[in-house]
Structure formats: structure tokens, C-alpha cells
């Protein structure tokens, strides 16, 4: 019982940190103490925190490497924008439309997670890294040539150009190929972002500390022993991957509905790696570390704008300090693990 309370205490501290940070930033915001660039970053920071937390479920708890997390963010972003724009006539409440957009984003990203996960997670070895890497690029390129619009007849799609969708002249173009989603009505708020972080924490923490979460971590620690205990390997790897994809999709919807336009190029390999950096620097399997790393590494470049000349120097020093402070032992073990995984697999 002692351990259970220690684990849930840890979880409650994480909720507390998020709530305290929200109160601090919200009061800075309402008393106009926040620079305009930083206040514009609040929702993206929330989205990145959710991204980092969800990737940590795959990388930290399931022990798989995913290099295409931004792909799920992209799917969530565009699905969310489409849902929100398509419903702008029928659902008048902005908050409710945001909720629907986030749920739709999560569902579509989860479906993509299932489609990728089922074939790949059956295999042993680091195939997931390769496939997710390709997935991220494919999603970016597919979205680059997607044209989606809505009129009184419903949604229209095309992969050629906006005109070939055959819409009524009064229809709206939602996604315009490489120019991305246009004319988005900004619905995301800092409060909504904070709530999404809390929900993400709730889902991941409770999942990890349950029967399924033990199975997921057990498979990571020793696949052969887990099988010998009767654990369905593919099922639990898929569970972690799909939950993670769904959360990334919800982050994507939150992110996209914070801007008037979103281009597919935003969710490229660099974004996937950036999120992976948050996870590795924050500590593999360390949720609080992911939160802190995502916030610090997003805010820092903004704060350092004034010190143009020394910006990269300070950034580098902070990176090193973060790495030393958080579990860099685990990070190095993880990097070693990538190379040693094959030899561990032998019975």
C-alpha cells in the first residue's frame, strides 16, 4: 500500500505543477507582464507538453522508438480543423467545437496508429523507428497535395487542386494543398491547453499504474519473460502506441486551432525529433521531466531573443544542465539499449 500511495503522490505532484504553472502564467498574462511573443507561445507549449508526455508512453514505458510522432500531430491537426470548420454553422459554442475537434483529431490519429502498429509491432527489433520515420514523411507529403472543402452538400476532397473539388461557389476551402489549412477560427485557449495536459497526465499515469501498464513495462524490461508469463506482446505494445498516437492527435488539434493557418510542413521530421529531444532530456519514462523539458526548451529560445549573440551558447549550456539534472543515466542506457537490443533478444 505504501508504494501505491507513493506512486499516486508522484502523480498528484504532476497535476499540482501544471495547475500552479497555469495560475502563474495566467496571472502574468492578465496583468500584461508577459511579452506578446511569449503569450502567443502558451498554447503551443501546452501542445508540446502533451506531445512529449504521449511520446514518453511509447519511448519510456513501452521501450519502442518512434521517429514520426509529428505525423500523428499532423493528422490530429487537420482532422480537428476540418471538424471545427465543418461544424462552424451547426455548433455555435466555440468551446464545444474545440472539444469535438480535439476528439476527432484523437480518433483519426488513433486509427493511423492502429494501421501502422498492427503490422509493425508484431515484429521484433527496431522496425517501428524506421516505419514511423517514413510515416511522418508520408503524412506530410499526402497533406501537401490534399484539397478539402465544405459547402452545403458536405465535405469535398481532391488531390489535384482546389477547383476540381466541384464545390458550390459559396463553399469554403478548408485545406488548400501545400498552403495548408486556411481561415481557421482560433478556438484554442491556454485554459483548454492546460486541461488537455491534465487529461493526458491522468490517462498516462493511470494507464501506467494499472494491469495494462505493468504488462507494457514488463514487455519493455524483458520480452521473453513477459511471454513466459502469458502476456500478449503485440496487444500491449499496440495499446501504448495507439493511446500515444491519440494523445498526439489531440495535441495537433489544439495546436492547429490556435492559428489562422497551419501548413503541413510544420509537422515534419524536425518536429518529431524536437519532441524526442524533450523526452530524452527530460528522462526516459520520467513524465515530470518531459513536462519541464518541453516548457523550458520552448520558452528558452523566446527569452534568449534579447541576447542574440549569446543565444546559442546559453541554449547549449541549458541543454547540458538539463541533461545532468534529469536522469541522464537512463538516457545513456537508452541510447546503449538501441544498439544492444538485438543481443538481449536471444533466449
Amino acid at each position: 500500500m505504501k508504494m501505491i500511495s507513493k506512486k499516486s503522490l508522484n502523480g498528484f505532484i504532476n497535476y499540482g505543477i501544471i495547475i500552479v504553472l497555469f495560475i502563474i502564467f495566467q496571472s502574468l498574462l492578465s496583468t500584461k507582464h508577459l511579452s506578446s511573443s511569449l503569450s502567443g507561445q502558451l498554447v503551443p507549449i501546452c501542445a508540446y507538453v502533451v506531445m512529449a508526455l504521449s511520446l514518453n508512453l511509447v519511448v519510456g514505458f513501452s521501450g519502442e522508438l518512434s521517429l514520426g510522432h509529428a505525423g500523428f500531430m499532423s493528422i490530429g491537426a487537420f482532422a480537428g480543423v476540418i471538424a471545427s470548420t465543418a461544424l462552424s454553422g451547426s455548433v455555435t459554442s466555440g468551446g464545444f467545437r474545440l472539444l469535438i475537434a480535439i476528439i476527432v483529431g484523437a480518433i483519426f490519429a488513433a486509427l493511423a496508429g492502429v494501421v501502422i502498429g498492427i503490422p509493425v509491432l508484431r515484429l521484433r527489433g527496431d522496425y517501428l523507428a524506421i516505419v514511423t520515420l517514413a510515416f511522418g514523411e508520408i503524412i506530410k507529403n499526402v497533406m501537401n497535395c490534399m484539397y478539402i472543402g465544405v459547402d452545403s452538400n458536405g465535405l469535398h476532397f481532391s488531390i489535384q487542386d482546389a477547383n476540381s473539388m466541384g464545390m458550390e461557389p459559396t463553399g469554403t476551402i478548408i485545406v488548400n494543398g501545400p498552403m495548408g489549412a486556411l481561415g481557421i477560427k482560433k478556438l484554442s485557449t491556454f485554459l483548454a491547453g492546460t486541461i488537455l495536459i491534465l487529461i493526458t497526465l491522468f490517462i498516462i499515469q493511470n494507464l501506467v499504474n494499472s494491469r495494462s501498464g505493468r504488462a507494457i513495462a514488463g514487455i519493455r524490461d524483458n520480452r521473453i519473460a513477459a511471454e513466459a508469463c502469458g502476456i500478449q506482446i503485440t496487444k500491449y505494445k499496440l495499446m501504448a502506441f495507439v493511446v500515444s498516437a491519440a494523445l498526439a492527435g489531440s495535441a495537433g488539434a489544439l495546436y492547429a486551432l490556435n492559428y489562422s493557418t497551419v501548413v503541413p510542413k510544420k509537422f515534419d521530421f524536425n518536429t518529431s525529433i524536437l519532441v524526442l529531444v524533450f523526452v530524452v532530456l527530460g528522462g526516459i519514462g520520467n513524465l515530470r521531466g518531459s513536462i519541464i523539458a518541453a516548457i523550458v526548451l520552448t520558452v528558452l529560445p523566446e527569452l534568449l531573443r534579447e541576447f542574440q549573440d549569446y543565444r546559442m551558447l546559453v541554449y547549449a549550456i541549458v541543454l547540458i544542465v538539463v541533461m545532468i539534472v534529469t536522469n541522464n543515466e537512463k538516457a545513456s542506457a537508452f541510447i546503449k539499449g538501441i544498439f544492444n537490443k538485438k543481443s538481449k533478444e536471444v533466449a
Binding site: M3, A228, G230, I231
Partner: peptide, 19 residues
């Protein structure tokens, strides 16, 4: 030995109890 090293002793047994 093949234990779930990063899990507690109790959680190791609970994985045995999984089914």
C-alpha cells in the same frame, strides 16, 4: 535471470498474476 528489473518486486509478481 530474466526479471522486470525496473519494476518493483510486487509488480513482477503481479505480471505473473496478469491473466
Amino acid at each position: 535471470i530474466r526479471l522486470f528489473d525496473k519494476l518493483t518486486v510486487e509488480d513482477n509478481v503481479k505480471i505473473g498474476l496478469h491473466n
